[in-house]
Simulated assay, not measured.
Amino acid sequence: MTGFPQPDLAHDLLADRRRMKRRLSVWRALAVLLALGGLLLLGGWRLGPAGLGGHLVRLSVEGTISDNRELTEAIAAAARDPLVRGMILSIDSPGGSVAGGEGLHDALASFRNDKPLVAVMRGTAASAGYMIAMPAGRIFARDSTLTGSIGVILQSFEVSELMRSLGVQAEMITSGALKGQPNPFRPLSPAGRAALEGVLGDMHAQFVAMVAAGRRMTPEQVAPLADGRVYTGRQALELKLVDAIGGEPEARAWLAAEHEIPAATPVRDLDPRGTAERVLGFSLRALVKSVVSEWLAIDGVRAVWQLPG
């Protein structure tokens, strides 16, 4: 029996070896984690946000533009996000309310103060749909894109003759001669028309100023182009209302060349809509508000292009 470890001694030696192996495993795991952390840190310093998963955001503006607080807040959040390297603004819209276009224009201008913004016009980017492209550092359009329509419009209807033939008369009590104009139940007075034309003229001047600033032109240069007509993408390029013919691939190439954002950078859609709106494809509340304001109130002054009907 001599020369052989006693049973208790052999058990102790085995336990010590197991403890040493566990300690070595812990230290090895810590060394691996430290090495990975160092690589990530070095990659972040060398590549900036892209080294930490940086991406572009794509904002698709489609259909009628209305005042949208959730959207402007989402744009502001993207501007603050260190992982967002820039934005592709994809437009297919005939326009919308003047206030809605102005709010979106200002939110995008604020984004562009911090990060690159490029606009891509698709089928239609007219009126307020053109307005929101003005803050972009570069604007691309298709040859056949319908754009421009720099102007504002207020529509109402007047059915006093129809009501008279039906023997119906509408009574209206107002605090002033211009309150309640336009009104579908009585003709627009000369004073009312002059007042509304003044409102539209001021809004139109604001629109022209946005275009002049965005396109690096003077208001005098923009004015002859701002009579409400639409242009094709090719015409708009000749008039310097857009910068180039192309789509999203050309926009990605421009971001790579001018802002060193690789063409392979991932793109994530910016969508602040709620679940119901995403399912339906539109907001019922915005639709009702648009219809009411279009036909019944001064709030319906819009920057929208529409086919004559």
Rank of each mutant, 00 (worst) to 15 (best):
M1L: 13
M1T: 11
P7E: 13
P7N: 00
D12E: 13
D12G: 08
L13R: 14
A15G: 09
D16C: 12
G37V: 02
G43P: 13
G44N: 15
R46Q: 14
A50P: 01
L56E: 04
V57H: 05
S60F: 06
L71G: 03
L83G: 05
S90W: 03
S90F: 04
D92T: 02
S97R: 03
V98R: 01
E102N: 15
E102C: 14
L104F: 12
R122L: 08
A125F: 00
S127W: 08
Y130V: 02
I139G: 09
R142G: 08
R142Q: 07
R142H: 09
D143L: 04
I153H: 09
Q155T: 07
R164P: 07
A170M: 15
E171C: 08
E171R: 09
E171F: 13
S175F: 07
G176T: 11
P184C: 04
S189G: 10
A191K: 01
H204Y: 10
Q206M: 14
V208S: 03
A213Q: 02
R215M: 04
T218Q: 06
V222F: 05
A226H: 02
D227M: 07
D227T: 11
V230I: 06
G233M: 05
G233K: 00
G233D: 00
Q235Y: 10
K240P: 00
V242P: 00
G247Q: 00
E248S: 05
R252C: 08
W254N: 10
A257Q: 14
H259E: 02
V267T: 06
G274F: 10
G274E: 11
G274Q: 05
G281R: 03
G281A: 07
R285E: 15
L287A: 09
V291W: 01
E294D: 12
Q306G: 09
L307Y: 14
P308W: 03
